[in-house]
Design a protein around this nucleic acid. Structure first.
Lengths: 217, 217, 217, 217
DNA sequence: CATGAATGAGGGTTCATTCAT
DNA sequence: TATGAATGAACCCTCATTCAT
């Protein structure tokens, strides 16, 4: 019977908070600016968040959780269709980068130490997780015979994680939407050449040509 | 403001400031903690720096300037000894990463958005600069016939800059000094495979073998 | 503001308010805690009280009013039965202390400056009133020839009011119900000795013995 | 070499704080008002006190400590000059009440629950301590044969402590300095009559007369 | 009338910066 | 020049009160 809670309130506050955090970082963001942008009173902020940090945490943790689910482990050993798998991974990659692009504000924040010294651990964990998945793919590729046997997995996964990481940083910094598909494809090609056997490189180029042909139809 | 007499004062303050900035970020760093660590008075800080931000700027700009000089453009067209050049670049890369390692505190700060939303432009400029140099090397390599002709220079330079960037981030985060030389060599190998012609890749492996042989003597 | 319908509401709110005020004092008591304890909405509080202070005032003023009626003036000059009078006063005193004990929460609050600097006047007035009644009894006793003629009424009434006051403070602070009758009786004995003539003291002891004999039957 | 700390600062702040706390109680006192009255900046308050509560605690604990030392235990068994002892105790009492009068602001605050629900324990402890000392004097007096043997020490000490307590409350509330000596003397007389044997009461009156005679010379 | 979401004034505390010594 | 005491603007958060439903 009481005034029903405005369902847009929290969403608008989160949106405003996101914008302000992106603009100023956690420490310089003012709760008052957040609420002003959301067109609400200062007090309303505390109806939805226990503190400024709490709102920040909510924003970045949500993002991290979604980014965390953006990578697949390699399939279990057994028969599989390489071309299909490649297409899947490419699709996955594009989706991920699209997600990054759409959320480039907060992602930028997150990649920059979380806007505050105290949230760096989040991105560190995420990057470590990514690097480990890459490591597993590398080992899988070696086992499949498509990647070179002499890879220093530790170093290469570091470099590859770094390459994707750096790419992500650059994407979120753009002002115009880049051709994300081309970008991911190029990264795949890049990776294939860096770690693939000569045979696989040829096979890879062939897969890419097939893919492009399909798309044009 | 006249130059103060005691030259150690500023150095000690900078050292302390660096440590405190690294630990807490610009916004949460307290001038008092800086001066306390430097064993100086709070007032002395303002004899050397106009403000907290100014000290921060000095620290990061100095670092950026030195990092900025860590890359060489490719040599002008004409004859050159590829092996010597490779060795030079390798050497350069190791030195750069050693510098990063030694200054890993501030570099980490810098890579994390400068510890505050307002210094991100510094690292952005630096990364852009690196990417451009990489782009020039790529074009040079293509012109030399050692890199593949079908490279999307824009994308590849982005990816490579990202890879080095990501590697740097991971290095400065380590607690134990990694084998930097192996790391740089691996990155070179990685790059060579990613962008080199098949011929060059073979030549590259050969160069690496020669190099290792020399080192052992 | 029309009288609200639900009469239990106000009672429950007053009970809850009393508890919360006793626990935290006026300033630190939160309206929300009061309504939560009363199982009502925050808004309902303002249907019954104009403000938090108003509720507080209502609680303490009610108490003060009832405490105010706990003392009798001495009887008019003329004949009277001293033993009966003594018994009446003793009874009255016990009832008063029982009332204090039952309401020890709010009484404690009231005696402690009203939980806030702004309600001290209430207790001051009450204590002054008590002191004056005591003064009248003293004068009456002197006139009756049962109290010593050389009493400094002003001072003695001050001391006696203080003694009862202090006793009240101690009673409301107990966790177990003390023997209130013994307490009041002791105070009466104490008073009798302090202000009575030697004759009256003997008479008093006799009255007490009679009383105790009656009670045992 | 730096600006020396103004030695009056803390004292002035304490004085101002005392006044403001007395006026409004802990919760309603504003740090800003304290510093304004002390003619200082708001920040200066925090150079001397960790928090508003801390300043409050300092003020009341100091007072309690001094009040705590205002009572003497009875002398050890053995011979002693009763008149001298009486004179000493009278003197002691007068000094105590003079101290209360001089500090009537804070004492009033203290007696009113410490101005906040959370400091009540201080006065409770103090009052308990006083009551115990009174109990020891009573036992001593009984042992000396000057107090009646049938005293309910527990109750009487409660009543006496209450009487002094109530007196103190009334004293600190006065606007004009009362005749403290007369007051204490009357309390002594009051006590003597309440608990003394008939013999002692006579002796007491005699001591008082001697004392008054001495004073007039 | 009853509800509880929304409001926003208010105040404690921090800390960069100034400045008297 | 060097010091560190003093300053006061800034800002988070609380909570009494209002009011739309």
């Amino acid at each position: 019977m009481a005034r029903p809670q405005d369902p847009r309130a929290k969403i608008e506050l989160l949106k405003a908070a996101e914008a302000v955090f992106v603009e100023h970082g956690l420490d310089r963001a003012k709760v008052e600016e957040i609420t002003a942008r959301a067109g609400r009173s200062k007090g309303s902020f505390y109806l939805h968040f226990a503190s400024k940090e709490e709102a920040f945490r909510q924003i970045v943790e949500t993002l991290v959780a979604r980014l965390s689910s953006c990578v697949d482990d390699p399939p279990p050993p057994g028969s599989f269709d390489l071309e299909e798998l490649f297409e899947q991974q490419l699709q996955r990659g594009v989706e991920t980068f699209e997600f990054l692009w759409v959320n480039r504000g907060v992602v930028g924040l997150l990649l920059c130490g979380g806007g505050s010294a105290s949230f760096g651990y989040l991105i560190e964990e995420l990057e470590q997780q990514y690097q480990q998945v890459i490591g597993r793919w590398l080992r899988w590729g070696v086992a499949q015979g498509i990647y070179r046997k002499d890879l220093d997995i530790e170093l290469i996964s570091l470099a590859l994680a770094g390459a994707y990481d750096g790419l992500a940083r650059r994407v979120v910094r753009q002002t115009k939407r880049p051709d994300l598909r081309a970008m991911v494809l190029e990264m795949e090609r890049f990776t294939a050449r860096a770690v693939g056997t000569f045979e696989y490189i040829a096979q890879f180029d062939c897969m890419v040509r097939n893919l492009e042909r399909k798309r044009k139809q």
